[in-house]
């Protein structure tokens, strides 16, 4: 099943929303810079920058699923042995 709207209709509907979200993100990053201290070594900053890169990459996976996986803990299929369950 696909979305009944065509891409132009989606863009018409969401352009201002996307613009607003990018602006929110920009302001958040500015706020981080204005605040005292430095969080460059914090791994969350690394995740944020990887997340931003995903938005511009072209792959066959959806961007939303890739972002979800980026912010997910790793699954290890030997967990049951580790827990002795």
């Amino acid at each position: 099943m696909s979305i009944p709207l065509n891409s132009e209709q989606v863009l018409d509907r969401e352009y201002l929303e996307i613009r607003g979200k990018i602006l929110e993100l920009a302001a958040s990053l500015d706020r981080l810079e204005r605040a005292a201290g430095c969080v460059n070594e914090d791994n969350r900053m690394n995740l944020i920058s990887q997340g931003l890169q995903i938005l511009l990459q072209e792959t066959d996976q959806t961007k939303a699923a890739q972002i979800q996986m980026l912010f997910s803990r790793v699954y290890d299929d030997t967990w049951r042995e580790q827990f002795e369950l």
Binding site: Q68, M69, F71, S72, R73, V74, Y75, D77, W79, R80
Partner: peptide
């Protein structure tokens, strides 16, 4: 959040096992 993917896979392991 960050626990969802790992936890979901663990749950599916227990159910399908």
């Amino acid at each position: 959040l960050e626990d969802k993917y790992q936890g979901t896979r663990m749950i599916l392991d227990m159910l399908t096992g």
